Simulated scan of single mutants.
Amino acid sequence: MATRNILKQGDETLNKRCRPVTQFDERLHTLLDDMAQTLRESGGVGLAAPQVGILRRVVVLLDVNKDPEELVELVNPEVIEKRDEERMIEGCLSVPGVYGYVTRPHYAVIRAQDRNGNWFERAGEGMVAQCFCHETEHLDGHLFTEKVEEYVDVETE
Rank of each mutant, 00 (worst) to 15 (best):
Glu121Cys: 08
Val60Lys: 01
Leu14Arg: 02
Gly97Val: 08
Glu69Ser: 14
Asp84Ser: 15
Gly126Arg: 02
Thr103Ser: 12
Pro105His: 10
Val21Gln: 06
Val60Thr: 04
Gln113Arg: 13
Leu62Lys: 07
Glu78Met: 05
Thr22Cys: 06
Asp33Leu: 11
Glu81Lys: 14
Thr30Val: 13
Glu12Trp: 07
Gly53Cys: 07
Glu78Trp: 00
Gln37Gly: 10
Asp33Ala: 15
Arg19Cys: 00
Val95His: 11
Ala108Leu: 09
Val109Ser: 11
Asn76Trp: 05
Asp84Glu: 14
Gly124Cys: 04
Lys66Val: 10
Ala36Val: 05
Cys92Pro: 11
Leu32Lys: 05
Trp119Cys: 03
Pro96Met: 02
His106Trp: 12
Glu85Tyr: 09
Arg111His: 12
Val95Tyr: 04
Val128Leu: 12
Ala48Asp: 09
Val52Arg: 01
Pro77Tyr: 04
Arg115Gly: 04
Thr13Lys: 11
Val59Leu: 07
Leu14Ile: 04
Leu55Trp: 03
His29Met: 11
Pro96Ala: 03
Glu12Asp: 15
Thr30Glu: 15
Phe132Met: 07
Ile80His: 10
Val109Phe: 06
Met127Thr: 08
Lys82Pro: 03
Ala108Gly: 12
Val102Pro: 04
Arg57Ala: 03
Pro105Asp: 08
Gln51Trp: 05
Glu70Val: 04
Ala112Arg: 03
Val98Pro: 05
Pro77Asn: 10
Ala123Met: 01
His29Gly: 12
Gly100Leu: 06
Glu41Phe: 00
Asn116Val: 00
Gln130Lys: 15
Pro68Gly: 09
Ser42Ala: 14
Cys92Gln: 06
Ala123Phe: 00
